[in-house]
Simulated assay, not measured.
Amino acid sequence: MKFSFISLLCVMLFCSLESAAQKKGSSHAISLHALTEFEPTTSNWKLVKSVSFSPTSDQKSFEPGEGILLALPVKPDTGHLFTKMQHSDLELEFDFAVAKQSNSGVYLQGRYEVQIFDSWGVEKPAFYDCGGIYQRWDESRSPKKGFEGNAPTQNACKEPGAWQHFKIKFQAPRFDKNGQKTANAKFIRVELNGVTVQENVDVTGPTRSAAFEDERALGPIMFQGDHGPVAIQNIRYCFL
C-alpha cells in the first residue's frame, strides 16, 4: 500500500511537470473575434474584417467585422492596447500593415519596443525605422537625452499598405531573490518579412514611451496606438 501511494505521487508529479512543460512550449493564437484577450482600451482600437491603406496617399478604408485589429488614433482617443497575458521569455509573431508615413510599435513586457514604421525606400535605416530597437530616453541627460537604440541591419520593409510579418524572440530580464537585476532584457532575434534584422541585442532598461518605467520579470505585450493608422492580425505567441 505504501509503495502504491509513493508510486501514485511520482506519477502525479511527473504528469504535473509534463503539463507545465507543454504549457511553456505550446503556441497560442490570440483570438480576434472579440477583444477579450486584451485589457479595455479607447475607441481608437477596433475589430474589422478588411482594411486598405493607399501606398501613395493618406487614403484608407475598412470594413467592420472580425479578424483584424485596426488602430485609428484621433485625440483624445489614442490609447495603447495591452494583452491580459503577462509574459517572461517569449516568441511572438504577427502580421501588420501601416498607412503611408505611419508609426507604431510593439513593446515586449510593455517596456521594450520594436519599431513599426513606414520605412519603405529608406537606404540606411536608423533605430526609429521598421525593425529597429527604439532608443531609451532620459530628460536629465545633457545634451543628448536619447541614448542606445539599435538600427535594423538592413531595410526589409515593404511598401505602405502591404501586409508584413514580424517574428520576435525575446528574453526577459533576470532578477535575484532580492529583486536585483542580474541580466538585461535581450532581443535574441527579430525577423522582418523573413529577414533577420536584429540579433542578440541587450536593452538596459525600458525604451522611450514605454508603459512602465521599472523592470520586472513579467509584463504584457503592448501595441502602440497613438501615432498613426496600423492594422494587426494573426498574432501568435509561445512561452520559452
Rank of each mutant, 00 (worst) to 15 (best):
K23H: 12
K24Q: 15
G25M: 05
S27M: 14
H28V: 15
A29C: 12
A29F: 12
I30E: 00
I30C: 02
L32P: 03
L32N: 01
A34S: 15
L35W: 07
T36L: 13
E37N: 10
E39N: 11
E39C: 09
P40L: 09
P40R: 08
T42W: 07
N44S: 08
L47D: 01
K49E: 12
K49S: 13
S50D: 13
F53P: 12
S54G: 10
T56K: 14
Q59W: 11
K60I: 08
F62Y: 14
F62R: 07
P64L: 13
G67D: 09
I68K: 04
L69W: 07
L69V: 03
P73R: 00
V74P: 12
K75L: 13
T78F: 02
T78L: 10
G79T: 03
H80L: 09
H80Y: 07
L81S: 04
L81C: 06
M85H: 15
M85A: 15
H87N: 10
D89W: 00
E91V: 09
E91K: 09
E93H: 04
F94D: 00
F94R: 01
D95S: 10
D95I: 05
V98Q: 02
V98P: 14
V98M: 05
A99P: 08
S102V: 05
N103E: 05
N103I: 06
S104F: 03
G105K: 00
V106T: 08
Y107M: 11
R111M: 07
V114I: 15
Q115W: 08
F117Y: 12
F117E: 12
S119Y: 00
S119Q: 01
S119W: 00
W120S: 12
V122T: 14
E123P: 11
P125C: 06
F127I: 10
Y128M: 11
D129Q: 09
D129M: 04
C130F: 05
G132S: 06
I133N: 03
Y134Q: 08
Q135L: 13
Q135H: 15
R136T: 14
W137V: 07
R141I: 07
P143M: 02
K144L: 15
G146M: 10
F147D: 09
F147K: 05
G149K: 00
P152V: 05
P152K: 01
P152W: 00
N155R: 02
A156H: 07
A156I: 11
C157W: 00
K158D: 12
K158W: 01
K158L: 13
K158N: 14
P160Y: 01
G161L: 08
A162C: 15
W163A: 03
W163Q: 05
Q164M: 08
Q164V: 02
H165G: 00
